[in-house]
Design a protein around this nucleic acid. Structure first.
Lengths: 337, 337
DNA sequence: CCACTATCTGACACCGGTGTCATAATGTGG
DNA sequence: CCACATTATGACACCGGTGTCAGATAGTGG
């Protein structure tokens, strides 16, 4: 059984391969009779066009690469889901490529990726969206890319972010308005720009409500549940014990909640806990976590959609947007006794 | 600035493009001097070979596709992580393609996927690994594939599974040995073969310990947290209330735990809860969930690795394996009072 | 019925690599 | 120094499509 190519179809149908190609791509200027005939041969021979050959001729792969290095699985899942939505809408596919930000091999790694499979563009998610080195490399290689949740200001490249600083401000203010003033904070991974932004939102809220910032209340996390557990221990051992904890993401907040519960503390009666991201876990546990909902899917969807537009037409204006983050109150925060 | 192709390199280096190709692929029979010269030009011109052209000539894309339709995000994450490990080891990349099992468009959808991007092979995860229709289609199209956690017996195709029935048996027996006899069960999604297997493991354990099977204790779930919440309500309202609940996965078990806690029930003192999968959430909540650890990453890793071997050499014997599932006891199950 | 335009169709080069095979250059033993 | 094996190199076809452009065919108005 021989492979069915455009040539076999052409011969079998008694037309030129160009005509077959026309039918394949729904191009005009093919008589209905011819089109019919060719379509019938497609079925008869069970022909599937070879995307690689097509890609070579058109210089397109219709594949977008998604780069990430993120301890939060749910964040990645959401990123993928947004990216896939945009991809499928435009008949693109998504190739995922987790890799480590650190290490000089990053560029080599990406170079190898590009040597292995030609990508029409790349979506950079944190912390890659903040890697100037990578951005410069992609520009040099003339690879289209879009940045998600990046803090870098670069008018030349697509960027969709949400306002982390403002979100952190709002959730901190929410705690303050509930009467809390002794509010612990757990930082995220130092490589992520969101870490600094959420931290400064926290600080701004304190400052604007005349609460002195106390560095002893700050624990170093890295967005992982595990790091949250470590930070939780440090925070719950503080004297006096803070009446509220704001963790930079929901996983770390969940770790605080777990330890607090293990220690027989009632949440939120004895201690309020707030997170960030509105990850699934925030509503899968009891009490549900008060948190900031970031439109991760939507950010990625927009970023990828714009990326695809840019690939299709280099003249497309560079899209830059900041989406809103929203406070979601659940049972884990309450009035300070 | 012109594109750098193998031709420009060849001209610039004063050799034929075939020689350049030889250097590119580390082929023998190139004099050290020539090799050196060409490598220097690579650097000078910052040449990156075009993977599409290479793919066309070699009839390879070095991309594996991963098919899934699964409500459990953590399951998918684990699948991806195992698949990526195997891919990267062999210099392959991973393209992800979630789609719906139901609907006659499935085959059309996959056909479109194959038309859009040529894949060297596909990993089928549940419920696709159990779709005879899809398997037949892929065979007809001569696409290599590997099945993960499939219940279908097909000696011709690669398959890696774990023993769900035995796992369910063991965790049910664990509950029985703790003195429980009124054990509720939440089923998974009907499209997944694991659902039936876990259910029959539950039933076998009851039978072997002379406990009458009571259909009223069985709730229909679909592996999602939400369905678990619905089932939880039905189960906790039963009279008499079961002393233990075994949910077919951890998300649904977490939903039971949440509702029980909301209703002021103490877990495990008032009711024991067991899950399946050892998803991250099982250890992120308090009390931690007793569950069955399935080696999802390892299953997928092996499946993809074998798939790649098969792609490289059609003569490779078809690999079939069943990995062991392991009982993990945490705080959510205890002796019946 | 003819001139002229609009609609089809195919020949051919091309995308950027790899495989085959012939030939050139080099090395080895007698 | 020659016969012969070995290594190095390039010419050329080929992978399976698409773009360009010229020529053929059909359609239209005078």
């Amino acid at each position: 059984m021989k492979k069915v190519t455009i040539n076999s179809v052409a011969t079998y149908a008694g037309v030129s391969k160009k005509t077959v190609s026309r039918v394949l791509n729904n191009e005009p200027n093919v008589s209905p009779a011819t089109r019919e005939k060719v379509l019938k041969v497609f079925k008869e021979l069970d022909y599937t066009p070879n995307p690689i050959a097509r890609g070579l001729a058109r210089n397109r792969s219709f594949i977008i690469g998604c780069l990430y290095d993120n301890p939060s699985k749910s964040y990645i899942t959401r990123v993928q889901s947004g990216a896939l939505e945009a991809c499928h809408k435009h008949h693109y596919n998504l190739l995922i490529h987790p890799c480590e930000l650190r290490g000089e091999e990053l560029i080599a790694n990406i170079e190898h990726l590009l040597t292995t499979s030609r990508l029409d563009g790349m979506v950079l998610t944190p912390p890659f969206s903040d890697s100037q080195e990578l951005i410069d490399f992609l520009k040099k290689k003339k690879i289209h890319f879009a940045r998600v949740a990046s803090a870098i200001d670069d008018a030349e490249s697509i960027s969709v972010r949400s306002n982390d600083e403002q979100g952190a401000y709002e959730i901190t203010e929410h705690l303050i308005k509930l009467g809390h003033s002794n509010i612990a904070f757990i930082k995220g991974h130092p490589d992520h720009s969101a870490t600094e932004q959420r931290f400064s939102g926290y600080q701004r809220a304190l400052a604007e409500h005349n609460i002195a910032f106390n560095p002893k209340l700050v624990a170093e996390g890295n967005f992982s549940y595990h790091s949250g557990a470590d930070s939780a221990k440090a925070i719950l051992d503080l004297e006096p014990r803070p009446s509220a904890v704001f963790a930079s993401n929901d996983y770390m907040a969940a770790a605080v909640l777990k330890l607090a519960t293990q220690r027989q503390l009632k949440v939120p009666q004895d201690i309020s806990i707030a997170g960030f991201d509105n990850a699934p876990i925030a509503r899968h546990i009891w009490p549900g976590l008060t948190t900031i909902a970031q439109p991760v899917e939507e950010m990625t969807r927009q970023a990828v959609e714009q990326l695809i537009l840019q690939i299709g037409d280099e003249q497309t204006p560079v899209y830059q947007a900041t989406l809103e983050a929203k406070l979601i109150t659940r049972e884990s925060t309450a009035q300070h006794k």
